[in-house]
Design a protein around this nucleic acid. Sequence first.
DNA 1: CAACGGACCTGCCTGC
DNA 2: TGCAGGCAGGTCCGTT
Length: 271
Amino acid sequence: MPELPEVETTCRGLSPLLTQTTISCVRVRQPRLRWMVPEGLATLLPGATIIGVTRRAKYLLLDTDRGTVIVHLGMSGSLRLVPEAMAPGTHDHVDLVLQTGHCLRFRDPRRFGAILWTDQAPWQHPLLSALGPEPLGAEFNGQWLYQKAGARSTAVKSFIMDSHVVVGLGNIYANEALFAAGIHPARAANRISLQRYRGLASAIKQVLNEAIVAGGTTLRDFADGTGRPGYFQHRLRVYKRNGGACVQCGILLRQRTIAQRSTFFCVHCQR
DNA sequence: CAACGGACCTGCCTGC
DNA sequence: TGCAGGCAGGTCCGTT
């Protein structure tokens, strides 16, 4: 589910609801996520106050006065604010119960997500320290992509999904951004000019910004922190549209696998 | 170093 | 109707 726009949507939805609330207890029903949920959470967090909710890459950071809860939604995770008494479902693995009578509920059927803790600056955490730039920041541009591509012969689609190059792009938005930039997803990263990388960088920014405005993409069950779905799925131009007509030239869109991920593109508009 | 495949999980859909 | 197989929004890690 969650690429950068979905995580950002969750972040923006939850931030005003969680900021300045105090955690009363932690309920862990299933600690076995991608990594074990730290046992210490249940003793550390009661009494802690949430200072703010921010995002780095696809990680949500719940900043408290004692440290930071780092949340990753994996493939199927979601975070919702619900009444404390609401009965949990099968895959509702963790609750942060608040003094307001609500709880922040982490659901994740596939358990590829994670809940971690750090009392250091979160960007120093091993999972965050080596990440590339935020795609919506000024330091991410065509020059950066061109320089990072160097001699790499990997497909440009895998290249822009590499979190050391730029964060936040998953399979949906990598496909969409390459279509918007007119670049074939299988083209070797080192065979793209600086000029075309400038176009790609701005396409990435534009696609992500549009998706954030639309509240993200809801394919199956994504909802933001308050339960609202996203609407960007109606604006997808290539993702899962194989066999359909290209919105620009009308020929049939193709699908193939690149780096073990389904890839959708127009052979006429993308070179 | 870079590229690739495997691993981790469950649910849903298709086709036999 | 049942079941096997393939596929899904992520990303770390070990092996070439």
